[in-house]
Nucleic acid binder design. Structure first.
Lengths: 197, 197
DNA sequence: GTATTAACTGACTAGACAGTCAGTATTGCA
DNA sequence: TGCAATACTGACTGTCTAGTCAGTTAATAC
């Protein structure tokens, strides 16, 4: 029974804190004490706070890409349209069971760091490319099988991502409980892309 | 020629800084020096940093509500559908000429503060209510004149807001230049809500 | 002109926080 | 067992920042 290494434990704690309170408002001491170690230990495993953040992001990236690839390995769809709706529903589902991942990705610091830190930028690009390609692929398949109308798959994929992301954000800012919007969102997307000859 | 009061000048500087770098990463000294005054002066006009933030938000709220009400005073639309698309286009337009407003509204701190600061929450609610009602009203009008299909106006208004907001965010994170998505977004929204009997 | 209030400032404080470092404990292995 | 490397720690430092305060300057009122 190989117990979780401290390095992994640090990353797990940091994921929750960075996602929930942001980079600047999370102190290394806090990460340490919640992990059950002493502050200086983190600096043995990670040279700087920024390096810890990038490791956290890398971890999220890996988890996210894996989750989606697993989903598409297991699910099969009668049409491109159904595949798209399935992807959207799974995206929403994942954003509920792995809130931290999506909060972290939406943190401003993540994007600001990506502008100056190549490693950070690479991870972020992998994530976004993955998310967009999922939608785009479904759209392409749907155009081939006739379930999806004639539209720019690339642009539409971006719009759908923005839409899903916007809904997740509405919910996380809980001004309105967006949860009740899920089925309406799927219906809206269907109307938006389906082929109505 | 009544020159801009220092209090207003502080708010203007703070708007740009809070929007651009976030609350925590903006220091009062920085706000002061960019305004051309000394640090302590801010604390004469605003008791705390948080109070300054709320004033900034109030200012944004006022500007935003005014901008939209002016737009609808001047524009007139042949149908509810066109009114909706006009509102979306103007929303996107405004997010370009008043980037700070929208950045500030999307900052996490804004929403975190709203959870504990009633004044902040009130301003934020006014903003969101205004934005949603604009879309909802257009949808209701459109259902009356037959240009918009049978759908929940409230939920659809929320979805459209999430969509527009998501696009603005995509652009501000400039992973993709979302600017080219504007016309596609309008077309998508049209397909999503129009009445196709 | 003088009194009163409002606007402003320089010098300071107390706390927080990232990161260092010299040294101690723990592990793996010969 | 002993040796070497790896993992970990306590005590510390320099810097940054929100907020204070006693006092100065500017505006207004009479």
């Amino acid at each position: 029974m190989p117990k979780k290494s401290k390095k992994t434990a640090i990353i797990d704690t940091a994921t929750i804190l960075f996602a929930g309170k942001g980079f600047t408002n999370t102190s290394m001491t806090e990460v340490a004490s919640l992990t059950g170690i002493v502050g200086a230990t983190i600096f043995y495993h990670f040279k700087t706070k920024e390096e810890l953040f990038v490791s956290v992001l890398e971890n999220v990236k890996t988890g996210l890409v894996q989750a989606f690839s697993l989903y598409f390995q297991e699910e099969h769809f009668p049409s491109g349209l159904e595949r798209l709706l399935g992807a959207i529903a799974y995206h929403l589902h994942l954003s509920e069971i792995k809130k931290e991942w999506f909060h972290l990705l939406r943190r401003h610091y993540t994007h600001e760091l990506a502008a100056v830190n190549p490693a950070c930028r690479r991870h972020l690009e992998v994530v976004y490319t993955c998310l967009i390609e999922i939608f785009e692929r479904a759209l392409v398949i749907g155009q081939e099988d006739g379930s999806i109308g004639p539209l720019s798959t690339k642009k539409t994929a971006l719009i759908i991502l923005a839409m899903v992301d916007g809904i997740i954000q509405l919910e996380s800012n809980n001004l309105y409980n967006a949860g009740t919007l899920y089925s309406e969102l799927l219906a809206s997307c269907r109307r938006m892309v389906e082929n109505k000859q």
